[in-house]
Deep mutational scan, measured.
Amino acid sequence: MKTQEELTEIVRDHFSDMGEIATLYVQVYESSLESLVGGVIFEDGRHYTFVYENEDLVYE
């Protein structure tokens, strides 16, 4: 089982391919040991929310 830090790094690596990240945040109250819920804001102003669970990243 991966730690929350490892899950965060996986998500950061994925989004870094889309541009320069200004902020990546995790909603700790919605996340667990198996899933990571949060959002990412890019330097150009784009903002996505995401759920990473079971090695699957869903964002909008």
Rank of each mutant, 00 (worst) to 15 (best):
I21R: 01
Y48I: 10
T23R: 11
N54H: 11
T8P: 02
A22F: 08
N54R: 10
S31H: 11
T3R: 06
S31E: 13
L33M: 13
L33P: 12
H47T: 05
E60A: 13
T8V: 10
Y52F: 09
S16M: 11
L33E: 10
S16A: 12
Y25D: 04
E43D: 09
M1N: 13
Q4P: 06
E55T: 09
L57D: 01
I41K: 06
E20Y: 10
L36V: 06
E55I: 05
V28F: 12
M18F: 08
E6F: 08
K2L: 09
I21Y: 02
D13V: 15
E34R: 08
D17T: 15
V58W: 13
V28P: 06
E5M: 09
V40S: 00
V40G: 00
G19D: 02
D44G: 04
E60F: 11
T49M: 09
H47V: 07
M1R: 10
G19K: 02
F15Q: 01
H14S: 08
V37I: 12
I41H: 06
T3P: 05
E9V: 09
V28Y: 13
Q4I: 14
Y48E: 01
S16P: 02
T3C: 06
I41S: 04
F50Y: 06
E55Y: 11
V58M: 10
E6V: 08
I41A: 04
T49A: 07
M1T: 14
E6T: 06
V51K: 13
A22K: 15
V40E: 00
E34L: 09
I41R: 05
D17W: 13
T23H: 13
K2I: 05
L33T: 13
E20K: 15
L24E: 00
M18H: 08
E34C: 08
E60R: 15
S32A: 12
E55G: 11
G45R: 04
Y29W: 12
I10E: 07
G38K: 00
T23A: 13
Y59V: 10
Y52M: 05
F42E: 00
D13I: 14
H47Y: 07
I21A: 01
D44Y: 02
S16V: 08
L36K: 00
T8A: 09
Y52N: 00
G19N: 02
E60H: 14
L33Q: 13
R46Q: 07
E43F: 11
V51N: 07
E6A: 09
S32V: 12
T3D: 05
Q4W: 07
M1K: 13
E53M: 14
V28A: 14
I21G: 02
E60Y: 11
I10K: 09
R46K: 06
V11C: 04
V11L: 07
M1L: 13
E55C: 08
M18P: 01
D56M: 15
L24N: 00
N54C: 08
R46S: 08
H14N: 06
D56G: 13
S32Q: 11
E53P: 01
G45Y: 03
R46L: 05
M18C: 07
E53N: 13
L33N: 14
S32E: 13
T3W: 05
N54Q: 09
G38V: 03
G38H: 02
L57T: 04
L57R: 01
V51Y: 13
S16E: 08
Y48S: 00
K2Q: 06
Y52S: 02
T49Y: 09
L7Q: 04
Y25R: 03
Q27D: 11
L24C: 04
Q27M: 13
R46P: 03
R46T: 07
F42V: 00
M1C: 09
T3V: 05
Y29C: 08
D17S: 14
E9L: 12
T3F: 04
S32W: 10
V11P: 01
V11A: 04
V51L: 09
Q27P: 03
E5D: 10
D13H: 14
E55D: 13
E5C: 12
A22N: 11
A22C: 14
V58I: 12
S16N: 10
E55H: 12
S16D: 07
L36D: 00
E20C: 11
V37K: 15
V51F: 10
T23N: 11
S16F: 06
E30V: 13
N54G: 10
E30N: 14
S16Y: 07
V58E: 07
L24M: 09
T23M: 11
E5R: 07
S35G: 06
F15D: 01
G45H: 04
V37W: 11
A22T: 10
G19T: 02
V28L: 13
S32F: 09
L36S: 01
D13P: 04
F15T: 01
S31A: 14
S35D: 03
T8Q: 08
Y59P: 03
S32Y: 10
D17V: 14
Y25M: 04
E6Q: 09
S16I: 10
E53Y: 11
I21V: 07
M18A: 04
R12Q: 05
Y48C: 04
H47A: 07
T3N: 08
Q4A: 08
D44A: 01
G38W: 03
E20I: 14
D13M: 12
F42D: 00
L33G: 11
F15C: 03
G39M: 10
E53S: 14
D13N: 13
Q27G: 08
H14L: 14
Q4F: 11
E34V: 11
H47W: 11
L36F: 07
L36E: 00
L24K: 00
Y29Q: 06
E53Q: 13
E6W: 07
V40A: 03
E20V: 15
L24V: 09
V26N: 02
Q27T: 11
V58T: 13
F42W: 03
L33I: 13
Y48K: 02
L24S: 01
D44C: 03
R12T: 06
G45T: 03
S16W: 07
H14F: 15
E20D: 11
T23E: 10
E34T: 11
E20Q: 14
E20M: 12
L7W: 05
T3S: 12
G39N: 07
D44R: 01
Y59S: 05
D44H: 01
Y59H: 07
M18L: 11
Y25Q: 04
D17G: 14
L57E: 01
V37M: 13
M18Q: 06
T8Y: 10
E43H: 14
V58G: 06
E55M: 13
R12C: 06
T3I: 04
I41V: 09
M18I: 08
T49F: 10
V37F: 07
